[in-house]
């Protein structure tokens, strides 16, 4: 009777032995093969994992935590803004709740190479379409957009020479939030924030909340 028991227990154990041993040995063998990133593109993808909790793996962002859609953003712009966060030029204002969440996360990037790598990875992400989150009057906004077009271009495609990022195809709630931040001085007041200091007076030409909504509504109609 107990002989049967013994063999039963023995069989479970010996069967379950082979797989874990194979896994352990195989795992060790595999792990020895690769001790680090082979190239910048792979490294960029790996480091982008830092951004995924808020911006999602496709870069589509999450309005609930104030993380904008970054899929397909130009690498030069991502790199510049990340560097601003790292240097404390952005995300160091008392009322910049989203910025205070962003700044520590980019400080976790180990080096400038990692910043470059992740910025390039962001550019390779295919753009993700999104809906609009509040109403506005694009016709009224069109007139106001004249000010913006000077730098950001008539189609909102941006202009690297002027340091103006693409704004067409960016989340409307994010544009509105940042315009408000520029207006109130939460963003663009740091002496080292060259582009921000240019942007701030422009944002202050928008008279009120309606103006912000309208101009953002107009930007939403632009095709980059």
């Amino acid at each position: 009777m107990h002989k049967f028991q013994k063999s039963a227990l023995y069989r479970i154990a010996s069967r379950s032995l082979r797989l874990p041993l194979a896994l352990v040995i195989g795992g060790l063998a595999l792990s020895g093969c690769r001790m680090g990133a082979t190239d910048a593109a792979t490294r960029g993808q790996e480091v982008f994992e830092t951004c995924v909790p808020c911006h999602n793996s496709d870069g589509s962002g999450n309005a609930a935590v104030g993380a904008p859609n970054i899929a397909g953003m130009k690498a030069w712009y991502v790199e510049r803004e990340v560097d601003k966060f790292r240097a404390g030029v952005r995300g160091m204002h008392f009322n910049d709740v989203e910025g205070m969440r962003m700044r520590p996360m980019v400080l976790s990037l180990a080096s400038e190479e990692d910043v470059k790598a992740v910025a390039h990875y962001v550019e390779t992400l295919p753009p993700v379409p999104h809906g609009s989150s509040f109403p506005g009057d694009p016709k009224a906004g069109a007139a106001l957009y004249a000010t913006c077009g000077a730098c950001h271009g008539d189609t909102g495609a941006g202009n690297q020479d002027l340091g103006a990022p693409r704004i067409a195809g960016v989340d409307d709630w994010y544009l509105a939030t940042e315009l408000r931040k520029f207006r109130s001085g939460v963003r663009g007041t740091n002496p080292k924030d060259r582009e921000g200091r240019l942007m701030r007076p422009m944002a202050r030409t928008l008279a009120n909340e309606d103006a912000i909504r309208n101009v953002v509504a107009y930007v939403e109609t632009l095709k980059p």
Binding site: A87, M92, H93, F94, G185, N190, P191, K192
Partner: peptide
Amino acid sequence: GQQALPSPSTVGMDGLATMAEVR
């Protein structure tokens, strides 16, 4: 004219320098 708004960041460069040093 700016009373409703929070005062701008006063951290300035001192703060940056420290953080950069730490990095």
